[in-house]
Simulated scan of single mutants.
Amino acid sequence: MRDPSVDEHRLDIGSEYHMDDIKGIFDSGGFMAGINPRKDEHGDVEYIVLTSSGDSHYSDHLRGDRVRYIGQDHGDGDQPTSGRNGRLIAQCDELSVPIYFFSRESKGEDWEYEGLVDVVDHEYISDGTRMINRFLLEKLGIPSSDDYEEVEKAVVKENDDPPLEEDTDETEETGSRKTRSALFRRRVKRYYDETCAICGSNRKTPEGNSEIEAAHIYPRRENGRDHYRNGLALCRLHHWAFDSGWISATDDFEILVRQEDGRDESEEFASLEGNQLILPSSEDHWPLPKYLQKHREMHDFDSV
Rank of each mutant, 00 (worst) to 15 (best):
F269L: 15
S266L: 03
L237A: 13
R263G: 01
L277W: 04
S248F: 02
L256H: 04
H238A: 10
Q259S: 12
E268I: 02
C235G: 10
E268V: 02
R263L: 13
C235Q: 07
L272Q: 04
A249F: 05
E260K: 09
S271I: 02
S281A: 14
E273R: 06
S266M: 03
E254I: 05
E283W: 00
I247M: 12
S244T: 15
E283C: 00
A270T: 02
E260I: 11
A249H: 08
F269P: 05
F269N: 10
L272V: 02
R263F: 03
I278F: 00
S281C: 01
N275H: 13
Q259G: 03
G274S: 07
W246Y: 10
I247R: 09
P280D: 14
S282P: 01
I247F: 06
T250A: 08
R236C: 10
D251T: 08
W246A: 13
E267I: 01
D261P: 11
D252R: 09
C235E: 09
L256Q: 11
H238E: 14
E260F: 00
E265V: 04
A249C: 12
F253Q: 12
A249V: 09
D251S: 14
H238N: 13
S271E: 15
W240Q: 11
Q259D: 15
P280L: 09
D243M: 03
D261K: 07
H239A: 09
I278N: 06
L277G: 08
S244D: 15
E268N: 02
G274V: 05
A249T: 10
E265C: 00
S248N: 13
S244Y: 03
T250W: 03
D264K: 03
S248H: 05
E265L: 08
E273Q: 15
D264V: 02
F253T: 07
F242I: 13
G262K: 05
N275E: 15
A241M: 09
